[in-house]
Design a protein around this nucleic acid. Structure first.
Lengths: 189, 189
DNA sequence: GCCACCAAGCTAATGCTATTAGCCGCACCT
DNA sequence: AGGTGCGGCTAATAGCATTAGCTTGGTGGC
């Protein structure tokens, strides 16, 4: 019998595909093994189990999100940076409905690799606010509010939490414009 | 053997307790049956299965959230209403970490009971914005932004997504203040 | 070119989960 | 007191993750 030629990277990649297609609940070792044309236990030669697979997927997804966010804010500032970052954020979530939720699970304590990627992603959000001149607690509060709004928006959109009355993209743009104005006057908040 | 005296309501209630203690992943029919002092298949006399249990829990949790939000906005307006509603929202999420996520899953198509409760909760959020004089798409966008921020904030807080550097409550207050200012100037957004 | 080794695949077995089928007895209603 | 329905039970099935241990194919050393 010919070997399948799997590697941990391939397993993680196909796992992300599977999650994007059917949601994270459908990510099962059995389904993934079938997708890869391999018996279920064979996967254990490449990943440590379902939990380990999910962790690796989270690291990969977070790295990709961080990369896109970093690219979006590079060379931009103010509303321009904020808009580009937010659009990149939402686009990633729309394109990767299975991978996105993994980018927002907190890394396990001591998981340096995962923590580093999560930090990179959070830094890109933070960087989009650099032009607003916020410092200390102001900057922390602003970053938290922005992350919360982005996270909540894409989750509600993906979950069908918004009605069908108005395109989500329009509401998203308006929300970002609202944040731009709020950040400009943040110190008075 | 003495009867346990279960009802669907009791099963749902204990299920919510279980979810609040260990998270939604730990909500298993086996654990719930053990908690209720009953064999696993006995639960099927009261709920249709795991999916049905989760749906009933979602309805109950959403009803409770809607009740609290409705009470918070009653007799208040403007920033007062916004703050009270937001505090009630966050408090519910903190007190019911297992039940809260269920309040934000979209009802199945045709599930009138679930839809009605979800509508009640969304209406309470909407009602908190009444004092800002927003209409049409402006009101839709504002409600979506507020819901997104509330949802994202409590999820990130519960998931440990925020660092330990600053109390989340302070950031939450600041976020609400930011929304108050943003809604006051929303039409210009 | 052969051989030995290692890793990648496999089958088999275990235990946990949900679900269904079918049995039994308690408690209420007349 | 008796009948009946409902709420509990045990048994059986199927899907999942995980572990153990076997087999074989590809590759590097000689």
């Amino acid at each position: 019998m010919p070997r399948a030629g799997l590697t941990p990277a391939i397993v993680v990649e196909r796992g992300l595909d599977l999650a994007d297609e059917g949601g994270l609940e459908r990510l099962t070792l059995a389904a993934l093994a079938a997708r890869l044309g391999v018996a279920l236990p064979s996967l254990y030669k490449h990943v440590g189990g379902l939990d380990d697979l999910r962790r690796r997927m989270a690291v990969a997804a977070t790295a990709e999100l961080a990369r896109r966010l970093g690219e979006a804010v590079a060379g931009r500032s103010g509303l321009d940076a904020l808009t580009a970052m937010a659009e990149a954020y939402r686009r990633y979530a729309v394109e990767h409905p299975g991978g996105y939720p993994l980018t927002q699970v907190a890394p396990a304590a001591g998981d340096a690799e995962h923590e580093a990627e999560a930090e990179r992603a959070a830094s890109a959000v933070f960087a989009a606010l650099r032009g607003y001149g916020l410092e200390g607690d102001d900057a922390i509060d602003a970053t938290r509010a922005l992350r919360a709004a982005l996270h909540g928006f894409v989750l509600l959109e993906a979950g069908g939490g918004f009605g069908l009355s108005r395109p989500p993209g329009a509401s998203f743009e308006r929300m970002i414009a609202g944040f731009d104005a709020a950040f400009a006057a943040w110190r008075a908040g």
